[in-house]
Write a protein that binds this DNA or RNA. Structure first.
Length: 499
RNA sequence: GGCGGGUUGGCGGAGAGGUUACGCAGCGGAUUGCAAAUCCGUGAAGACCGGUUCGAUUCCGGUACCCGCCUCCA
């Protein structure tokens, strides 16, 4: 069996992965707070850990992996958005406005992550549907002396958990020295964090032994992972920015409530997405959403490939150059796979993936399969990385296109025939664009024929500027032919101006 | 201030204590009115300073710089 090795943040080492139960490998990933579109940074863990999910399914079997990713749909930013709409005159209740907003955001999230080729997790619990489990866990923590109630709040007693700070490598005393901790007067200790807080009438709330209120952020992951995966499970993952305090607090809650369990064995953290060297984040405002890129015409598969080009443990930048390279690569792969039947997933692709999810290495191995013309292996192995090359082949941006004007035949450039006069592009080409390009091609060839290279070159560079590349070649009959190669977007009106 | 991570050729980005990563770009050749495309070939690296070693870019220590967390955050 394939041996998977993963870097465990807890030990800061690469460790051999041994599932607690190979018949039910359990993975929990911290999901989004659903108040807005996911930005590109939010998409990274989704794609990275989707590859992990696929790898685990590959190794242990599809039915033997359980993947949970939550939706945080109780949050002060969500409340604020709903309150703003209510104040703007919306007659509906706050709860209704919140539910509408979170439903819509979840729908967007699914659309965008589906486009990135991410499989849906086995379970996607919403925090608001597990309030009872959270209340039960909080009650248990109070009973065990790890939490206390003050003024309608319930706080976790950080000093009661000896190992607090072990995940992120800090000590409570060191952190207090930093002293950027909010100190509410009712806290026993400045490090204590909120499990439950009171809600006034203008906020959503649930009845609890401590009055009407709402849960703190960290408790939902502890409660839902316990309910769906048990007191101990295999892997807990998320962005590195969640390591502290979110994951540290989860560990404290879960290990104190269920000391027999030990919570997650392996912790994995993906590094951040950068924009101009700075972390992409909503608070800095330097973000763009996955939807923005999709709307700009970058297919999800290309975005996915750019993500996977960098190891998850390293910071990464999004650049158009990377996306263009990914597009070229995917077109190459998709073209070769025509008519191929999937073979075995190649070991040379699984091996780097098994080595701490080295997706960049796996992509290099895929490209090697392409160069060796192993279509069956490429097709199957790319699928393990979440690329459906057969489907990509049918997408407009990846389909070679040829139009043969002289005798009206429709042939594929480079596959059936080298046409004598043709327009090629990627995807459907509008009639008007094609006809204009053909007319320019005629004129260009005529100028060359009479030896007026100066005018011909000017026409060629003008056309190039508008996204039409003119080329001459010898046709199979020995007669010079012409080819107009279209960029992804060409404005036909501007092109007509050249005639 | 505390804690953690990073620094590889023009760019992106891997593995391995000693043998070509790879991709893109570049360069040379074939071809070409010029170019493009294609094919063949090819140069180029491991922040800095020490240490361990027969040998380190790969291990260890230090320095510099960059980034993240310590407040919401993937």
């Amino acid at each position: 069996m394939t041996k998977i090795r993963l870097t465990n943040t807890k030990s800061r080492r690469k460790e051999a992965f041994e599932p607690i139960d190979p018949l039910n490998v359990r993975l929990y990933v911290c999901g989004p707070t659903v108040y807005d579109r996911a930005h590109l940074g939010n998409g990274r863990p989704v794609v990275v850990f989707d590859v992990l999910f696929r790898l685990l399914r590959h190794v242990y079997g599809e039915r033997h992996v359980t993947y949970v990713r939550n939706f945080t749909d109780v949050d002060d930013k969500i409340n604020a958005a709903a309150q703003a709409r209510k104040e703007a005159g919306d007659p509906r209740s706050l709860e209704a406005l919140i539910r509408e907003r979170t439903d819509e955001t979840i729908r967007w999230y699914h659309e965008d992550m589906d486009a990135l080729g991410a499989l849906r997790p086995t379970h996607e619990p919403r925090a608001t549907e597990w309030i009872g489990a959270m209340i039960a866990m909080i009650g248990d923590l109070i009973a065990k002396g790890h939490a206390y109630e003050r003024e309608g709040h319930v706080l976790f007693r950080v000093r009661s958990y000896r190992d607090y700070g072990a995940l992120s490598g800090r000590s409570v005393d060191d952190m207090l020295a930093g002293a950027r901790v909010e100190v509410a007067p009712f806290k026993e200790d400045p490090m204590d964090f909120v499990l439950w807080k009171p809600s006034d009438d203008g906020l959503p709330g649930w009845e609890s032994p401590w009055g009407r209120g709402r849960p703190g952020w960290h408790i939902e992951c502890s409660a839902m992972s316990y309910e769906l995966l048990g007191a101990s499970f295999d892997i807990h993952a998320g962005g590195i920015d969640l390591q502290f305090p979110h994951h540290e607090n989860e560990i404290a809650q879960s290990c104190c409530a269920h000391p027999e369990g030990g919570f997650a064995r392996v912790w994995m953290h993906n590094e951040m997405l950068l924009v101009d060297g700075r972390k992409m984040s909503k608070s800095l405002g330097n973000f763009f959403t996955v939807r923005d890129l999709l709307d700009q015409g970058w297919p999800g598969e290309i975005i996915r490939m750019v993500y996977l080009g960098t190891h998850y443990g390293k910071p990464m930048d999004w650049t158009a150059e990377k996306a263009e390279q990914a597009r070229t690569t995917l077109r190459n792969w998709a073209e070769m796979v025509e008519g191929a039947v999937p073979g075995e997933v190649r070991a040379e692709v699984v091996d780097p993936l098994s080595d701490d999810l080295n997706t960049a290495g796996a992509l290099a191995a895929l490209n090697d399969l392409w160069k060796r013309k192993d279509a069956a292996g490429l097709l199957a192995s790319a699928h393990l990385l979440g690329f459906d090359l057969q489907a990509i082949r049918h997408q407009p941006w990846a389909q070679p296109f040829a139009f043969e004007e002289v005798d009206g035949r429709f042939l594929r450039e480079g596959i059936d025939y080298q046409p004598t006069l043709s327009v090629i592009g990627w995807g459907a080409v509008a009639d008007r664009t094609r006809e204009t390009a053909i007319a320019i091609l005629h004129r260009w060839l005529a100028l060359r024929h009479v030896g007026d290279f100066e005018t011909a070159d000017r026409l060629k560079s003008d056309a190039m500027r508008l996204g039409v590349e003119l080329r001459a070649h010898k046709s199979p009959t020995g007669v010079a032919g012409g080819l107009a190669k279209l960029a992804d977007r060409v404005d036909p009106a501007a092109l007509e101006g050249l005639l």
